[in-house]
Design a protein around this nucleic acid. Structure first.
Lengths: 204, 204
DNA sequence: CTTTAACCTATCCGAAAGGATAGGTCTGTA
DNA sequence: TACAGACCTATCCTTTCGGATAGGTTAAAG
């Protein structure tokens, strides 16, 4: 089994190489950037698996992955990354990657994943892929006052101003003003749009 | 490596057993229903992996999976199914399953997956898990007339009745009646809820 | 101790939404 | 032809919403 590891972090690369070669039946080649990796792919016989670090020189996002996939030999290429988002992982897999390996994976699991992919399967960590794509922050929630958030919550529950007022124990006109203010803050023209924006932002 | 396969389809079970045992270092035990499987788990030393068919006698949905996970020995349990939905697969993985194996998988991949899981990793087919959970149909869209759909579309764009009327070249009162009718059809109390429901259903 | 700013509160009024009711136009069918 | 049913249209009328305006409270800064 022939594997190529391309990563500009020497430490991680060496560790991975050591672990893989300890498996006995795996031949590992190394590269520190995309150019070196391509040279090795051109010069040697086809690899069972090529591991590319997302952040190493020459990668340019997923472009390097696509370029490597398009190279002769039809080798299987997987993406290796420390801080990639789930979205990037999905894009990589859609682009035809053999898998996605986060650097947070335990060494043992990483070895298993590499062997798994080299055997022709597609790999990605389950928990990573099924995690909800939670927006990093809710910039909206930050800009709204507590009362406005409560009013907005009532709005997303399709309550009338009167109901919201009763629930919050304030008068209806007050609710209206909060509405008006929060429309301005979230950029909505009316309550329907405000509700859709709130839902879109993942609030409540 | 010790594997237990529980499935009431003899043909599939025998095929799988044959393939696995051909790998040389795998000992396979069989069961035709959940009760038999539990007896084997109790009687023998711990398995590296237990494969449970979702539809065999005694399973009762994911209950059988949970019961098996809770048994002594702490064995790893994976779900095997022919027609499970992505939702069931996710629930199984959340419940602590070692993996999910659809019966549509090629034999070679299935063997790889079983070995992968027996080594302690969690497996699920990438394409299966990342597939969008597209609602089979939009039951809403079927119940609404063309005009009502156009009105609802305008509503999700946060337009006023007057704007919708102008866009559709009808009078405003007509728009109102369409609104009222579609509220009833989709089960909304007001326009905000109707907009949220439409968005939720994936319309527009 | 003022001052400023941000927030919550309230009043009034025009505009929009929502309900009830009814006429008009197509289908397909007896 | 007559009829039923589904759909689109329109007219009143009441409720609700949305905007403009302004007073009251609290906390931080001068």
């Amino acid at each position: 089994m022939r594997v190529l590891i391309a990563d500009d972090h020497d430490l991680l690369r060496d560790t991975l190489v050591m672990f893989l070669e300890a498996q006995g039946d795996i031949i590992v080649r190394q590269a520190a950037n995309l150019g070196e990796a391509h040279k090795l792919i051109d010069a040697e016989e086809v690899f069972d698996l090529v591991l590319l670090d997302l952040n190493m020189p020459g990668m340019n996002g997923l472009e390097g992955l696509r370029a490597t996939l398009a190279m002769n030999g039809g080798q299987r290429v997987a993406l290796l990354s420390g801080e990639a988002t789930r979205e990037i992982a999905e894009n990589a897999l859609e682009a035809g990657a053999a898998g996605f390996v986060p650097k947070t994976l335990p060494a043992k699991s990483m070895i298993n994943a590499v062997k798994f992919m080299a055997m022709g399967e597609q790999y990605a960590p389950i928990d990573f892929m099924t995690a909800l794509d939670e927006s990093p922050e809710h910039p909206l929630a930050e800009k709204l006052s507590p009362r406005e958030l409560q009013v907005l919550k009532g709005l997303t529950e399709a309550k009338s101003n009167k109901e919201i007022a009763r629930d919050l124990d304030i008068t209806e006109p007050t609710v209206k003003l909060h509405m008006k203010t929060l429309y301005r803050k979230v950029g909505a023209a009316n309550r329907t749009q405000a509700a859709l924006i709130a839902r879109e932002a993942g609030l409540f």
